[in-house]
Amino acid sequence: MTPKIKIQTTAMDLWYDQFQALKAIDIAIPERAVTAFIGPSGCGKSSFLRCLNRMNDFIPAARVDGQVLLDGRNIYGAGEDVIALRRQVGMVFQRPNPFPASIWDNVAYGPRLHGITNRRTLEGIVEGSLRGAALWDEVKDKLRSPALSLSGGQQQRLCIARAIAVEPEVLLMDEPTSALDPMATARIEELVRILKEHFTVAIVTHNMQQAARISDETAFFLNGEIVETGPTQRLFTSPRDGRTEDYITGRFG
């Protein structure tokens, strides 16, 4: 059975002024699976991730051509509501970035944005999200403590809890473990494996072993193009393109 495609890009280009950052990106991201983007620094993988929830909109000179279909709807089409889109496509960043507020307020931030004010409802969302991010047991007795008093790994899981609190369908993760120690990294990786039961996960990582461990599909980016995509298992054991082979065996990058 082929899984349903959640996001499909067709001939997608990304321009920053005169500079073309992404060229003719065609990729299908399957639903409820983990898709990893690998490639050397500056290859466009993070830029691509930010195209998927239109975070590149904040860069005035950025322009996207081609199509990015989310459930068949072009998110760059006329009349697309970016606010609603970002609620549907959440994001977790490279450095843990909880707000300087309490743990509870961090998780409740998103639901409140979208107009949920009922205390009981919020309590439920906060608990559910923290459980979903495997953080509940560690923080349930100190929900009023500042988020910044948590360890780096806990902060990143809090950010994941905060992201899933608005019930997105897709979770974009931009090198979510690059600032964490190995144990915290392992926890996040385990969490990603659980998350994919409910979310479509797209993750950018510099760590190839991480991509190999947690992803179902992998795409290799190089100089703004996708060189190769395929099932992770195949891509890391028998890449078809020589450039993929050279990159993952450390010949460059």
Partner: peptide, 17 residues
């Protein structure tokens, strides 16, 4: 930090929010 703004926007917040 830019991170705070990014985190907020990524949850579907408007600029004023």
């Amino acid at each position: 930090p830019r991170d705070y703004r990014d985190a907020s926007y990524a949850m579907g917040a408007t600029k004023w929010q």
